[in-house]
């Protein structure tokens, strides 16, 4: 599968931003900032149905569909996960279901955050990506 130009562009922008950060401290401070800046999800959305349960931290994800585009909002009780969630939203929100389904998300590797997708992290991030794609699939079938 080939990623859409829009996703490639968004991922490149993130990789570029991280290229300016030399140390692990700077990278994590950046992610922590992103986590803090991501607007908290309204309480009405923080319900069991929207929970993507990791073993250690909780992620809430909601998706909406308008004009052929999928929009995501999310939150987490752990700020680093929330920062990574913010990056995923930056890349995937506001795109068509097809584009989301084709996303490879190679940027996580390039910015050195792949370890957060490791199974032992149990932080719901891997499950969150899956859930984002499930939403895209569901909206795709509504569309057609």
């Amino acid at each position: 599968m080939i990623e859409s130009a829009a996703i490639a562009e968004r991922e490149a922008a993130i990789v570029e931003a991280f290229a300016l950060l030399d140390t692990w401290e700077e990278k994590y401070e950046y992610i922590i900032d992103l986590g803090k800046q991501l607007p908290p999800l309204e309480e009405k959305y923080k319900v069991a149905d929207n929970i993507i349960k990791g073993c250690q931290s909780t992620v809430w994800l909601v998706a909406s569909f308008s004009d052929g585009k999928v929009y995501f909002k999310a939150d987490s009780d752990a700020v680093i996960v929330k920062g990574l969630v913010s990056l995923l939203i930056q890349v995937l929100s506001g795109l068509s279901p097809d584009e989301i389904l084709q996303a490879q998300l190679g940027f996580l590797q390039e910015i050195g955050m792949m370890s957060h997708l490791a199974q032992t992290r149990s932080n719901g991030l891997r499950a969150m990506i899956q859930q984002m794609k499930h939403y895209a699939l569901a909206f795709q079938s509504i569309q057609s």
Binding site: W24, Y28, I32, Q56, S57, D77, A78, V79, I80, V81, H116, N123
Partner: peptide
Amino acid sequence: HPQDMGVLLDN
């Protein structure tokens, strides 16, 4: 969150 602490300690 304990997980955030764990990630930074691991680093």
